[in-house]
Design a binder for these strands. Structure first.
Lengths: 193, 193
DNA sequence: GTTGTTCTGGAACGATTGTTCCAGAACGGG
DNA sequence: CCCGTTCTGGAACAATCGTTCCAGAACAAC
């Protein structure tokens, strides 16, 4: 006895994610969101709640998508070093060609809101833990397979890798100089050499 | 034949810096600025121009203050390792006690605006170069004095240190777990060991 | 004291903010 | 068909946004 939804909820949320990702929380207006999501203003409020709630849902969505990407990249069989190299090189490459450098939505959220908004802090923190976990498992596998014998404290190195990745992504927002970014990657990866 | 300024220009700019630092560009309103700076609305516009111009001036100001701090810390005679340890430990310590974690204004500016605003990109980039230079000179000194014989490419390591510092500061916004942050510092500094 | 400049507080500007209300069209199940 | 739900576009809301205008007070040089 009810009418069906005309729009795809997931697709709309994905669009919202891209808006918040590119513009941040404060600079993204409901107007922008309505236009980019391609749905009605009222539908937005009915389906996703207010702006802040929508933002948190978009952040969740990003965590799932990006988490899966990192997971798959690090879980692929073969050299762990090669996987890490792939991950970091991808950031350098991406930030050089991408027209509007959006960085990492999680990193952006930490920078803009995590200091003042507990929910954002919690979400970014748990995403950090998830990524750290992926790094950790990859390092353990590398140790077991004899590739990373030099790694003494895999938990610490995993945390370091996440922090370095965020630092690199941040730098890539300011500079487009390839050599600078490659230098950072080179030294970072030397830790697992 | 003119009336003197009633307020201290530098002091007002310093206050503006703190507002933008804590809240970011978009979330800081002129209202906030007027109140915190303790000057009149009109005086703000007459003295500093519009919001965007004021933001860039505040960013410059931060660059000077923070640049001098890092410069002095790294230029002090004695062990370079100890100076680096001091710098990174200071971040960990600071982010644990500081009530409202503001992070680094430069990092915040990169995250929020550098991808879309050329002036912000230029300013954050040149600040990055300055900090990188301070790291570079310290590393060179360490090599000359025999403390850092293992450092092969000081330019690359300097860039790495800046990126790592930003990554650490970013993580400190999301988590308050001391062990996590100390792990990052430990592995980071192992590069210059 | 007069004159000229610049300060100050407050009102006012139009635009945009996030959010809600409304009327009607579109659809599914009885 | 009809009833009930939910879609849609647009108007409307009060609040706040960045910015400008204005009238008068405060001061410096003459």
């Amino acid at each position: 006895m009810a009418r069906h939804k005309e729009f795809d909820r997931d697709e709309a949320l994905h669009k919202a994610m891209e808006v918040f990702w590119a513009r941040g929380y404060a600079a993204a207006s409901i107007q922008d969101l309505v236009k980019q999501m391609g749905i009605n203003r009222q539908s937005l409020y009915d389906t996703f709640g207010d702006k802040h709630t929508l933002y948190l849902k978009a952040l969740d969505r990003y965590g799932e998508v990006e988490g899966r990407r990192i997971f798959e990249l690090l879980e692929q069989p073969g050299s762990v070093k090669k996987s890490l190299r792939q991950l970091f090189d991808g950031v350098v490459e991406g930030s050089l060609c991408e027209g509007q450098r959006r960085g990492c939505f999680m990193g952006n959220a930490m920078s803009e809101l995590a200091g003042r908004c507990k929910e954002t802090a919690a979400k970014t923190c748990s995403n950090m833990a998830a990524a750290e976990g992926a790094f950790y498992r990859a390092l353990l596998r590398g140790k077991k397979e004899g590739e990373l014998k030099a790694v003494r404290d895999p938990r610490a190195v995993a945390r370091f890798l996440y922090s370095s990745l965020q630092g690199l992504i941040l730098m890539a927002k300011a500079t487009q100089d390839r050599k600078t970014l490659e230098d950072v990657v080179k030294v970072t990866l030397s830790v697992v050499d």
